[in-house]
Write a protein that binds this DNA or RNA. Structure first.
Length: 512
DNA sequence: TTCCGACAGTGGGGTCGCAAT
DNA sequence: ATTGCGACCCCACTATCGGAA
């Protein structure tokens, strides 16, 4: 199959709004692709590269090269060239990658170049990624979409399922069962604004502490332990403590879901930055482990004694977890009978925060484990802080925000009457707000370099955020975590905005 | 040879709009 | 009405490469 066909379908998919039409377009293309091309075509149209990391970004891509006049590239050729990219390493590799990419781009037409660029930079923007590709795959093969989705969750990979399905037909889906040793996409949580709201929605529930660490899925089969992240990366080698803990448990074949986090000598959780830095260390794990030891803390069991627990109610899965994992290695929790019992949930949240944790996750007791989804039965509740900050500048948006000023630079007042930038945000704005702020900020503009528009610091905006992080990037030494716009405060003048000093005083735990 | 800056990739994430249910 | 998905981009961290010292 020619690459130009993929580029064409991707453009069509991007141009249509209806999901059903996107699905139909993808299904048609999957049918056209022969058995040899399908393993490449499906990931490409789902916006991902089968090879994973290639070491190609805007720098390696370099300057645009003149496009070819005629489409001649086949998807298999492209796949082979990109495969080469993953192979090169060591001195001179960056230049070599640039050369390969340049050659590939030179052989591509303008439309193909656009498609490849999106693929390589992870910005396909066709409004159809994995989930829509799954639907298309189901349609192309006559399988039930729900069965395909489940197989993808259990296999942890769309590609594997696609190959089996196209080779053997819908019967192949049977093969994809929960297997100890093969990672499964984890269940995710939605947000709720208060425990009262969460308990109201879920009724009888468990309220669990939410630890601010890294999500882990631990598989043990006999003496073999594997640890995976949320995106199913294998990080076993970086977490010897977790491997040891799993081997010490009185079970031979299990899959556990939990969090890995670092506690200080006093037993308080270290900052997310410290835990994440430790988990990210690969070169000298022994030293990293000595400096920042981590502990696994589990909250769910997907399999015990090789038995698949996914479809059991959470209450039963947790009972299995409790049998296998001793208390300190499980998250703390309390059971709440329903809305009338909300005060208990609120006390538990207050206690959890006092112990230095992020918040709580409220979980319905009846719900199965929804692998790979944001199940409505897990609701996280975290305290939200707000500040009135001043817009210092804004960046021009992309995609559906093209032509709108989108990403705001936020400043707090300093002692000398100026403003210190604390970070940026593009979140929380409605289309109406985007339109309004674009007009207002243009009035205040003092400079536009085509990317960033600097403005007179006069517009006050209310910002919600989850806390402070240490920063080497910003002058105050801190930045806001997960900042988002709540509303504009036209009733406030910049002199009334919050100060850096007050912010630091409000977050002594940031330790600056 | 060693150091340091820039780049790539990965972790954590919230909210909106739209299509589908 | 509600749900699911994709788009919108953030910041911090580590590893690696490439060029400067």
């Amino acid at each position: 199959m020619l690459l130009t066909r993929l580029a064409e379908v991707s453009r069509e998919v991007a141009a249509t709004a209806a999901r059903s039409r996107k699905t139909a377009l993808l299904a048609q293309l999957f049918r056209e692709a022969g058995a040899g091309d399908v393993p490449i075509v499906i990931p490409y149209l789902a916006g991902r590269l089968p090879q994973g990391r290639l070491g190609v970004g805007w720098k390696v891509l370099g300057r645009p090269v003149p496009p070819a006049a005629e489409p001649t590239l086949t998807v298999r050729e492209v796949d082979a060239r990109l495969g080469e990219l993953g192979e090169v390493a060591g001195p001179g590799s960056q230049a070599e990658r640039s050369r390969i990419v340049g050659e590939l781009m030179g052989a591509a037409t303008e439309a193909e170049q656009r498609f490849l660029l999106g693929l390589l930079t992870g910005e396909v923007r066709q409004g159809a990624l994995d989930a829509v590709a799954v639907e298309g795959l189901a349609q192309a093969t006559g399988a039930e979409p729900a069965d395909v989705r489940r197989a993808v969750m259990l296999a942890g990979s769309l590609q594997t399922v696609a190959e089996a399905l196209l080779g053997e037909g819908p019967a192949a889906l049977e093969r994809f069962r929960l297997t100890v040793g093969r990672p499964v996409l984890p269940m995710l949580a939605h947000s709720a604004s208060s425990v009262a709201e969460a308990v109201e929605k879920l009724g009888a529930c468990a309220v669990e502490e939410k630890l601010d660490g890294i999500r882990i899925q631990v598989h043990r089969e006999g003496g073999r332990v594997r640890i995976h992240t949320r995106t199913l990366d294998d990080i076993t080698g970086r977490l010897p403590e977790v491997t040891a803990a799993a081997l010490a448990l009185p079970g031979e074949r299990f899959i556990l879901d939990g969090e890995v986090i670092s506690f200080d000598a006093a037993g308080r959780p270290r900052s997310f930055q410290e835990t994440a830095g430790r988990v990210g260390s690969r070169t000298d794990v022994a030293r990293a482990a000595a400096e920042v030891p981590v502990s696994p803390v589990f909250f769910d069991a997907l399999a015990v004694d090789g038995r698949d627990l996914l479809d059991l109610p959470f209450a039963e899965r947790h009972a299995e977890l409790s049998r296998l994992v001793p208390e300190p290695m499980r998250v703390r929790r309390t059971l709440v009978s329903g809305p009338e019992d909300t005060p208990r949930a609120e006390r538990f949240l207050a206690d959890t925060l006092a112990r230095g944790h992020e918040g709580v996750v409220v979980k319905g007791l009846d719900a199965p484990y929804s692998a790979g989804r944001r199940g409505a039965s897990w609701l996280k509740v975290k305290p939200v802080h707000t500040l009135d900050l001043v817009v210092l500048a804004a960046e021009w948006g992309h995609g559906r925000r093209t032509g709108r000023l989108s990403n705001l630079h936020l400043g707090a007042r300093t002692a000398d009457g100026g403003f210190a930038m604390l970070g940026k945000t593009f979140k929380g704005m409605t289309d109406a707000m985007l339109a309004w702020q674009t007009g207002r900020l243009k009035e205040l503009a003092v400079e536009d370099d085509g990317r960033v528009v600097r403005v007179r610091p006069e517009l006050v905006v209310e910002i919600a955020y989850d806390g402070l992080q240490r920063s080497t990037r910003y002058p105050a030494g801190v930045t806001l975590r997960f900042a988002r716009v709540v509303r504009y405060r036209e009733d406030k003048r910049p002199e009334e905005a919050d100060t850096v000093q007050a912010l630091l005083a409000a977050h002594p735990e940031a330790g600056t």
